[in-house]
Design a protein around this nucleic acid. Structure first.
Lengths: 341, 341
DNA sequence: TTGAAAGCGATACCAT
DNA sequence: ATGGTATCGCTTTCAA
């Protein structure tokens, strides 16, 4: 910076103002400084800037399991949206461990970034509060009963309702839900979890249709991935007749594993069983059969999350109530629910 | 930090040494300081640390298209490996634009990170050299003719040779290669590209088997994704009889799109055509049919890349020749090449 | 073994 | 409109 100032024949202070476009600096001086900076291939040191001003134009995105489709496609969308606002996104992967989340929040996020978009796993609100040192944060699918941070949610209830309604409309009469059993609705701590919200949506749809809902229809699964789901399909099919003619899987990955597992057992989707997923991962469109799904509008979610974060960033003092928004979703009707085909 | 020092009743300098485990500090003093830090919930400011010492324990990973399977699964593996060495990974997405890569290298990478693992797209070696200001960097699939940076490569030639050999062994007699046409072997600038290396491997396998290789066997595709590949399959099938009984797709995504596209046209994989991919993305295992592929050993690649980077980090002066390593790979034989089934 | 103080590279206050 | 300079939080040299 000193070099640039010397080259432009101004003080370091003036150079700093000029480069950031402060209105006090003359147009002429400014262009002189910019020319000098370009000539010297100068770019401001982000650590120094961050240290002094507390801002450096970098937003952190911390998310679980980056090797899975939904999180990676979600982070990519958020990253693009952040770039569109002239800031830089850095993405971090949290693993199963609480320590990991703590370390990311405490170290990188609150010290290297202006703000964070965070998909919480095992850290409580209170801990987060202590770790982020007042820096802005927006949660993805906050599941706390009493939110204290801004957040953007996926449309769990509405989406699940739509999914079940779709299966019923396709003629399914024995519907199963794969991903969680009803116990998640009973534990108070789980009441606002992603799984619980989707299950509640299912119940609502059943009630609205005036149908019986057996608790056995809800089947737990862990982890939420293709392999676990595929094994589950094998188990269900091996017990004799497959009990369902329609299955709502709580995520697309579960759905793809389920279809594959049924295929392994000679059960065809959608001829014998209809399957619908949730998320809208890209792979679903070219699977065989293509996957009907409740597709979260990732661009919409990213837009909402980033817009809230930027607002917080620009109004640091404002101590308003936590905002909570819900992302749009679409029912993508594809082959996997064309029952009988 | 001053607070911690006061709490532990030592000077700031001693506190700093103690927290970083400098051998000069007594065990007793050290534990006193650590207790104080824990009590105050202290964690060192990374910007300040980076500013003063030039190191902060953060490694940058910059990669193209984070919403695609291979890059996201690759970044996840690298991130895990970096964590295993007690450092923190931050992942950044480069988009198609050169500007974007420049900005990431120049700003974030060289100023916020100790070193970088970079998958180069549109930036030349010379530009990179100028941008990183001497900070360590390891490239993924460097395609420059005269490498000046360390890099880790996927086993393009060997993998492609294995793929073609496998198709021949499965009884394929009319083999197509989808992803690039032979022109990439002619342009000098492309000679070391990922595509070219894989094509060369194909040629070698054909020669070794004493078979004719028609230039028409190589079919270009852009972009390398499922949708483009699916359309290509439609075009090929619509021209009358499908010309191949075996197809090597330069990536798994291309392979899945190809299988789906053929399915759309009533051509079954593997009954009518065998298809093999390259990469080893997780989704291949539960596709219907499951995908035979040349699977890059991501853990091995991550290990090699991180190990080279850490070496550079710990020997900053050493001006040795650029190192170039190749990641292991496996032929995963699955359903998609069981020709005739 | 510990402490005092300089300095990393910016920003922002205050003076001119 | 521009310049001088203290300062952000830490590391590191040098002295004790």
């Amino acid at each position: 910076m000193s070099d640039v100032a010397r080259e432009a024949d101004v003080s370091r202070a003036t150079a700093s103002y000029a480069l950031r476009g402060d209105s006090r600096i003359t147009k002429k001086t400014r262009s002189k400084v910019i020319a000098a900076a370009k000539k010297l291939n100068y770019s401001a040191n982000l650590s120094a800037r961050s240290l002094r001003s507390g801002r450096n134009g970098v937003v952190g995105v911390a998310i679980f399991e980056l090797d899975k489709s939904y999180p990676s496609q979600m982070s990519a969308a958020i990253s693009k949206e952040i770039n569109a606002h002239g800031m830089q996104a850095i993405i971090q992967q949290t693993t199963n461990s609480r320590e990991d989340e703590v370390s990311i929040l405490q170290r990188v996020t609150s010290q290297l970034c202006d703000g964070t978009i965070f998909s919480p796993g095992n850290v409580s609100n209170e801990e987060m509060k202590a770790l982020i040192h007042g820096k802005p944060i927006v949660l993805l699918d906050d599941h706390s009963a009493h939110p204290i941070f801004d957040s953007v949610e996926t449309a769990g209830r509405e989406g699940a309702r739509t999914a079940i309604t779709h299966l019923l409309a396709q003629g399914c009469r024995h519907i199963g839900v794969v991903g969680a059993d009803i116990s998640v609705l009973e534990k108070p701590s789980m009441k606002n979890s992603v799984a619980a919200r989707r299950l509640i949506g299912c119940q609502e749809a059943f009630e609205a249709s005036g149908r019986m809902l057996s608790p056995d229809a809800f089947i737990g699964l862990s982890p939420w991935d293709e392999n676990a789901s595929r094994s589950l399909a094998h188990n269900l099919a091996d017990q004799g007749d497959f009990p369902f003619d329609g299955v709502f899987c709580l995520t697309d990955s579960i759905a793809l594993g389920m279809i594959r597992g049924l295929y392994d057992c000679g059960i065809s989707v959608p001829r014998d069983v209809a399957v619908i997923g949730f998320d809208g991962i890209n792979e679903g469109a070219s699977y065989i059969p293509s996957l009907t799904t409740i597709s979260t509008d990732r661009e919409d979610l990213a837009r909402k999350a980033v817009s809230i974060l930027l607002h917080d960033l620009n109004h640091p003092d404002r101590q308003s109530k936590p905002r909570r928004e819900t992302a749009k979703f679409n029912l993508e009707v594809r082959e996997s629910t064309m029952l009988g085909r």
